[in-house]
């Protein structure tokens, strides 16, 4: 059975309980007191010591308020014409998204790893064996999502294990357990896929036609990665959440590069042999 996450960003309230639960359970060190000045999110990104990261996306609307504004309607994002010439487009949207390792079906980090430290475990999750990783760091630029990162103090690369230890004991991962709105769902990938499609259909019925599933082969899984085991329900373009629209498998081109190099080597060999001609 392949397990994975479904992160429904539409119900995320940005409490960051998943970040805290992940840090506590996996005994990850603090990242220091950094102040970004960009938003209330001071974690910034996923890293070797942050395996869940809640992004705070502020989308303020551009027009100002006019007329007699009904603040309740405004907050609920009611779009119909209001009496008194009030224009509703002011508060904008404050979106949250709990980011995590995508556990790619064809994981670039796993293919890049020269030691065989990165494997697929019995739950079909991408897992780094910490006793084998020698910190070459080649998986880091291979990851199309910027998830896997080397920890300088430790030397090795780390990322979300999908709580391998908890799964072995029949528990759900710490982040999913801690999530108060069930924005983070854990389970069988096939079940989650169905659930995601249902939820997107439900959102479409409510008028949120921009909702879609990210992490399926159709969206955000082309270029050889073959989809993700961590899927997301998003409401905006992937770039808004710092995700690529079409991630690709970097190793896909390695064979082509080797063939091109062999051709170049032959040409250069011929050039050197020509130079010997009197």
């Amino acid at each position: 059975m392949a397990t994975g996450f479904l992160t429904d960003t539409t119900v995320c309230i940005g409490c960051k309980a998943c970040e805290v639960a992940c840090k506590q359970w996996n005994q990850l060190p603090a990242d220091g007191y950094e102040f970004t000045g960009d938003s209330y999110d001071n974690t910034k990104q996923l890293s070797g010591s942050t395996w869940r990261h809640v992004a705070f996306i502020e989308n303020p609307k551009k027009r100002r308020l006019t007329g007699d504004v009904d603040l309740v309607a405004l907050a609920e994002d009611v779009t119909e014409q209001l009496p008194g010439g009030a224009e509703l487009d002011a508060l904008g949207r404050w979106a949250f998204m709990s980011d995590v390792c995508k556990h790619c079906v064809e994981a670039p980090c796993q293919q890049a790893c020269p030691t065989g430290s990165i494997i697929r475990n019995e739950f079909d999750n991408v897992y780094i064996q910490p006793d084998i990783c020698n910190g070459c760091g080649y998986c880091v630029p291979a990851c199309p999502y910027g998830v896997i990162t080397q920890v300088p103090e430790d030397g090795r690369a780390f990322k979300c294990t999908l709580c391998y230890d908890r799964q072995r004991d029949g528990l759900e991962p710490a982040c999913a357990k801690a999530c108060p709105t069930n924005s983070i769902m854990f389970g069988d990938v096939e079940d989650l896929k169905e659930l995601a499609e249902q939820r997107v259909a439900e959102l479409h019925n409510k008028g949120y036609t921009q909702a879609y599933v990210y992490g399926t082969p159709e969206v955000g899984g082309t270029g050889g990665i073959g989809g993700n085991h961590s899927k997301f329900i998003l409401m905006d373009e992937p770039e808004t959440y710092n995700l690529p629209k079409h991630p690709f498998l970097p190793q896909e081109k390695f064979r082509g590069g080797v063939i091109a190099s062999a051709v170049a080597a032959t040409v250069l060999g011929a050039v050197v042999a020509w130079a010997f001609k009197d």
Partner: peptide, 9 residues
């Protein structure tokens, strides 16, 4: 993008 934070490492 997300506040200009690099999407890859």
């Amino acid at each position: 993008n997300y506040y200009g934070i690099p999407p890859i490492k």
